[in-house]
Simulated scan of single mutants.
Amino acid sequence: MASPLTTIGFDADDTLWQNEQFFRMTQARFADLLAEYVAPEHLHARLLEAERRNLGHYGFGIKGFMLSMVETAIEVTEKRVPASVIAEILAAGQEMLSHPIHLLPHAEDAVRALSESHRLVLITKGDLLDQERKLAQSGLGEMFDAVEIVSDKRATTYHAIFARHGDGAERAMMIGNSMKSDVLPALEVGAWGVFVPHGLTWELEHASAPEDHPRYAERSDLGAVVDLVREIETQG
């Protein structure tokens, strides 16, 4: 009998390695730089508005975040922001682009175990150069059969990727920490969608979990996902 599951997609940021915590640290630094102009909670709301507005222009990732911070600083200071503050914002972004990779618990073991029995595809959003750097530093790259760095994650994205690198979405699984980007669009095209929550998730990635979907699962960590895959194989 053919395996019911042949291809597994992994998200990268905050699924395999830490990411959002560095954005939060930079946002705190940003608030300190502009403390004399605006309260932190108001600044955060304005920055989030700018990020949402700019996604179509800059896409996901650190560079778009840097530009949104600069834009927000100009707006909240009514164009009076000192050049020294702009320089600090750029320096903070550059530090994020060179930050070392910290794998999440069970990430290496899970990827290694599943690579022995399934095709693995890394499916991630963000800046091309930065995502390539993080994958290279992670030490996980050789375990993936394919890497897809995409501008966004929609149902059509998963349909195309699982057709290109596997046996179609119905025999695929997507694993990630974003309900909105990793789970729901994968379920929409017939794949399994596995939610592995992270303690920190960007507000623009929040969404409600599906109710009673037969191919939806939530697991606390990637080690438990390996057990889930074995269960699916046994039932199939």
Results as ranks from 00 to 15, higher is better:
Val85Glu: 06
Val85Trp: 05
Ile86Asn: 01
Glu88Ala: 15
Glu88Arg: 15
Ile89Leu: 11
Ile89Cys: 00
Leu90Asp: 06
Ala91Glu: 15
Ala92Val: 07
Gly93Asp: 09
Gly93Met: 11
Gly93His: 10
Gln94Leu: 13
Gln94Tyr: 14
Glu95Trp: 12
Glu95Val: 13
Met96Gln: 14
Leu97Phe: 09
Ser98Ile: 13
His99Ile: 15
His99Leu: 15
Leu103Gln: 08
Leu103Met: 12
Pro105Val: 09
His106Ser: 12
His106Thr: 13
Glu108Tyr: 13
Asp109Tyr: 05
Arg112Ala: 12
Arg112Asp: 09
Leu114Ala: 02
Leu114Met: 14
Leu114Ser: 02
Ser115Phe: 09
Glu116Asn: 12
His118Leu: 09
His118Thr: 10
Leu120Glu: 00
Leu122Asn: 01
Leu122Lys: 01
Leu122Ala: 11
Ile123Trp: 02
Ile123Cys: 03
Ile123Asp: 00
Ile123Arg: 02
Lys125Asp: 04
Asp127His: 08
Leu128Lys: 14
Leu129Cys: 08
Gln131Asn: 08
Glu132Thr: 12
Arg133Thr: 06
Arg133Glu: 07
Lys134Gln: 11
Lys134Cys: 03
Gln137Val: 07
Gln137Lys: 13
Gly139Asn: 13
Leu140Arg: 02
Gly141Pro: 00
Met143Cys: 09
Met143Thr: 09
Phe144Cys: 06
Phe144Tyr: 13
Ala146Thr: 08
Ala146Arg: 07
Glu148Met: 12
Ile149Met: 10
Val150Ala: 07
Ser151Asn: 15
Asp152Thr: 10
Asp152Arg: 13
Lys153Pro: 00
Ala155Glu: 13
Thr156Cys: 07
Thr156Ala: 15
Tyr158Glu: 02
His159Ser: 11
His159Asn: 09
Ala163Ile: 06
Arg164Lys: 14
Arg164Phe: 05
His165Gly: 01
His165Leu: 08
Asp167Gly: 00
Asp167Trp: 03
Asp167Ala: 13
Gly168Tyr: 09
Glu170Val: 09
Glu170Ala: 12
Arg171Tyr: 05
Arg171Gln: 14
Arg171Ala: 11
Arg171Ile: 08
Met173Asn: 04
Met174Lys: 07
Met174Gly: 03
Ile175Ser: 01
Gly176Asn: 08
Asn177Ser: 14
Ser178Cys: 07
Asp182Gln: 06
Asp182Asn: 07
Asp182Val: 04
Asp182Ile: 05
Val183Ser: 02
Val183Phe: 02
Val183Gln: 02
Leu184Asn: 02
Leu184Gln: 05
Pro185Gly: 09
Ala186Tyr: 02
Leu187Gln: 04
Glu188Gln: 15
Glu188Ala: 15
Val189Tyr: 00
Gly190Phe: 04
Ala191Arg: 00
Ala191Lys: 03
Ala191Phe: 04
Gly193Pro: 03
Gly193Asn: 07
Val194Gln: 01
Val194Tyr: 00
Val196His: 05
Val196Cys: 10
Pro197Gly: 09
Pro197Tyr: 08
His198Ala: 15
Leu200Trp: 08
Thr201Ala: 10
Trp202His: 14
Glu203Gln: 12
His206Asn: 11
His206Ser: 10
His206Lys: 15
